[in-house]
Design a protein around this nucleic acid. Structure first.
Lengths: 336, 336
DNA sequence: CTGAAAGCGCTTACAG
DNA sequence: CTGAAAGCGCTTACAG
């Protein structure tokens, strides 16, 4: 590996001068030229580790997701990675597999790698390690849900509003018996999405508890949830609150030989590959994946550069209701 | 951050002694005790960057996948990440989005981060940067396909045999008109999987070109491929050569109101979440994901530790044909 | 077994 | 503007 020392020798200047040149300081024209020539000739590329030793920056960001096979998380990670790479930061990835001990261990691990920042997905409960990370000067961005009792930068979407809107639209189309496959309401996302649904329903006077079934965000849960809801009398529309549950729900509907939207209307959450293969294409709540990745990157790099001193930024992005053909218009008794 | 210097002072020994202690050298009982006490008291954790400066090791591995939303790749990455983390290596992740320029740029980027090794998925064509990486002492493991003209450690599965076996089994069950949705045969995986199919068919005297349709590994391709194949007369079974195409194919079959396996038998490739939600559960070629991740980790760490000196290891793992209910037995004219 | 010192590649006050 | 030197946190031959 070519070092600054060799460049200095080749150019006939001191290593300090080469270092200054590399860091954009102004120096004598002639020296700049000689140094650049030496760099080109030797193919000098710099040693980011040595740089980090002095500046105490590793130029890397740790990212901790629950599961690497969750397409929502990896889509955001993909966007984030590209943002970071453009800014010369690398992304160290870990998963924690729904395991709190593992979550803690991986956070410790990331700390030991001296990452400059950590992006953590779906972490809701404070852990002592978080304070240790902050004390060590590591910036933290929470994604998709805030961390209770730990103020930090946060990027999430307005889940409540998303659900609220879904009901609004379905209602406008004449639906009143709308079933929902909700997620764990002890967790942030599950609670927000269900509350938005429930409040919107109540406002219209069409809420009823037996329109709600619970799931755990897997396709099996969606499958069973849809089966259960479709057993009930008169349900005309179904709202499934995440991607995998939606896929399961659609499968169940097809197996029951029901047609979408003729027999049952459906609105899903998240717009990924498989949302489009289903015929008709599904009406879904679309999250701004690309934008989330970039916002996360921006927030964390800004913090590292000291731009966000002494304040925390919480970004709540709007979702987009992508309206397609999986919902049918219903004639009401008097309306229309 | 607590440094070795502070520990040395606290323990009343020199920094060299502390360093030796940390690296497992034997020293006077009493000193070991004092140092350990100092470490505990101060909460010393070590600085991996400083260590790397001397040893020229970054303790990180770069991983380059085509797309972060490809569940096959991310499943392996997940397994690999856990292996690496156990061995105190971090995983720096990048994607290249089917873009050769980007692939090259990311490899350069990983080089600039001084990774100790690089794991690259689905890279088939040699690039000059590869030699540069090797010359820089970076070990490379190719995953899922070999790199033409560049010898390096490789981890892949026996795709040819997998396909061969699928035909064998289908044939045993009485199927003779077996359609295949193949992938790009200019690429390694596509060629292997189709060749295994074709050879097995030919051996049984049941091959015909019009049983083959091409796809690009997306669900749309599977969807269209299945539609096309099912238009043909007499096809009783369908073999789809990757996960996403299988999902598309199943969707097409359902939409055509065909039943699996009564109307059409199907064998897919890859066993992930959605392979199980479909009823009946799909018969699929299952790749040893977990094992692949571990093999990759083992190979690369062994190389780094100098265990694989002057030779390249190519691991070809067997797949498993997971036999379930999406294939029906057919009575042949005379047989049975 | 252990201390003092040189060194890993780079940055940056200090002088000039 | 630039050189010499100290320093980032750690490792490791060299002496003893």
């Amino acid at each position: 590996m070519v070092t600054i020392k060799e460049v200095a020798k080749e150019a006939g200047v001191s290593i300090g001068t080469v270092s200054r040149y590399l860091n954009g300081y102004q120096l004598k024209q002639n020296n700049m030229k000689k140094i650049q020539q030496a760099i080109d000739k030797l193919g000098y590329e710099g040693n980011i580790i040595a740089k980090g030793l002095k500046s105490n920056r590793s130029m890397s960001i740790g990212v901790l997701v629950n599961s690497l096979t969750d397409v929502f998380a990896t889509s955001i990670v993909s966007s984030l990675e590209n943002y970071l790479e453009e800014n010369n930061y690398s992304l160290i990835l870990c998963d924690y597999q729904n395991d709190n001990q593992r979550l803690e261990r991986k956070l410790e691990f990331l700390k030991s790698r001296l990452v400059d920042g950590i992006v953590v997905f779906h972490m809701e409960n404070n852990l002592p390690i978080l304070k240790k990370l902050r004390d060590a000067g590591i910036f933290i961005v929470a994604v998709d849900s805030p961390i209770k009792g730990f103020k930090t930068d946060t990027v999430l979407v307005d889940n409540y509003q998303a659900s609220y809107q879904v009901v609004d639209q379905l209602y406008k189309m004449g639906h009143e018996k709308i079933g929902v496959i909700a997620g764990d309401t002890n967790r942030y996302i599950g609670a927000e999405r269900l509350n938005g649904f429930a409040d919107s329903m109540k406002e219209k006077g069409i809420y009823s508890e037996d329109l709600v079934v619970m799931g755990d965000y897997t396709k099996e849960a969606g499958y069973k949830g849809a089966q259960e809801l479709l057993k009930k009398e008169g349900i005309t529309a179904l709202y499934s609150t995440n991607y995998y549950m939606t896929l399961g729900a659609v499968q169940a509907i097809f197996e029951m030989k029901k047609k979408i939207p003729e027999d049952i209307s459906i609105v899903g959450f998240d717009h990924f590959e498989l949302s489009d293969i289903i015929q008709p294409k599904l009406t879904v709540v679309e999250q701004p994946i690309q934008q989330m990745g970039e916002m996360i990157g921006e927030l964390i790099l800004d913090s590292i550069k000291g731009k966000n001193k002494d304040r925390h930024t919480s970004v709540e992005l709007a979702t987009n209701l992508l309206w397609r053909d999986s919902v049918k218009k219903i004639k009401k008794g008097l309306a229309n």
